[in-house]
Nucleic acid binder design. Structure first.
Lengths: 206, 206
DNA sequence: AAATTTGTTAACCAAGTGGTTAAACCATTT
DNA sequence: AAATGGTTTAACCACTTGGTTAACAAATTT
């Protein structure tokens, strides 16, 4: 029970929390090791004691962020449920996951933009990137069955991803432009779980 | 074919072109004045001769980019045409405009994220940010008339923006993950102009 | 053509930058 | 209490950063 053989992790945790904040605010390039140390309330040398250098620290933060997102997306895309249910699940789960870390999408897209090949290598090496093949197949099957309208599966996938992910990318703009606070934004996104799914299904069902 | 050896291009133009590339690749924080000078093929001191400092140079680039986007969006949102036509126009025009500069959305969202209040001040001072009020009103009117389904106007606006803008934010991911080249991406986005409008209208019309 | 203004450069600088070092601190073990 | 070994710090270092200077070259004006 109280078998805490682990060394005291409070410093490491403080560093990770601080680094996450700074990297999100400033990006990999803009982040300063001194800022991270200050935010963690420690000496800069101690950063290098726990994480050899900036890139390694960033990778830990990034993989930690990616690790809490991609595997769950993957599971949804690989689950063998009917198309409409898969759409509903994706909206529900994706928006729920990201609502706890709204910064994630912009953070991830910036990293991909900075180094697309390196990103895929990192991710695929560690956990495998979500592949939407099954989702695309399901769409084609339903079209052939005649249960949904004829539509490009790729375009439908883009629509689903867009409507779930984009509002988080645009969050700072929405907050300042529509003068929303965090709670209102959260409420809108909560409503959106059901709205997006219904919006899509309404559009494609015959 | 490299036809124009840009000797006729003025130094200022060379700087602006170089700065744009570097700022897009590296972001405001990641960009180095030396890199911009190198890419422009000039001495670093000459950069400061034309643009006093980095921030001013960035502002020029940014306002130039914003200036070719926001006024046109504004015009669409303020044009007095029926709802469905406004949706069609938005998809058509937005995707067409951005296709010529696919980097713009991510660039803009990063800047907003870096300093939301400062962004609004800059933009509103210079050109006015597109206000979707008329669009929202039109939706409510159509709902009352009973020509479209009951739907939250804000959610519908988010859907429209998401589906038009997001694919450009996600472009590097799409290219590397779906193994597309620039031409294929362009073709998909071209197809999308009509597809998104129809997708939306199919979903909301009674 | 002389004087003046504009464009361009190499060399430089102060203030950071990521990263290292050596010494100190502190909880256990001996 | 001395020794141990992981943790933390102040001081430091080599290098990069944005920005400046002073001299020079090329137009432009007189």
């Amino acid at each position: 029970m109280a078998k805490v053989i682990q060394k005291d992790k409070s410093t490491e945790e403080k560093i990770l929390a601080a680094a996450k904040n700074v990297f999100i605010r400033q990006g990999m390039m803009g982040a300063r090791m001194q800022d991270i140390a200050d935010e963690a309330g420690i000496n800069k040398a101690l950063l290098h004691y726990y994480f050899r250098n900036k890139e390694q620290l960033f990778d830990v933060i990034f993989m930690q962020a990616a690790g809490q997102l991609f595997p769950r997306i993957r599971m949804i895309f690989e689950s063998d449920v009917p198309l409409f249910e898969m759409i509903e699940r994706f909206c529900e789960d994706y928006i729920e996951i990201i609502s706890a870390n709204t910064y994630l999408p912009l953070f991830v897209f910036n990293e991909i933009n900075r180094d697309p090949a390196g990103f895929m290598k990192k991710i695929n090496g560690a956990m495998g990137f979500p592949k939407p093949e099954l989702f695309l197949q399901k769409i084609e099957k339903e079209i052939k069955k005649g249960t949904i309208k004829k539509i490009s599966p790729l375009q439908l996938l883009l629509n689903l991803l867009s409507m779930c992910i984009f509002p988080f990318v645009a969050k700072p703009l929405l907050l300042v432009n529509l003068q929303l606070d965090e709670m209102q934004f959260r409420a809108i996104m909560d409503q959106r779980k059901k709205d997006v799914a219904r919006f899509i299904i309404d559009s494609i069902k015959k």
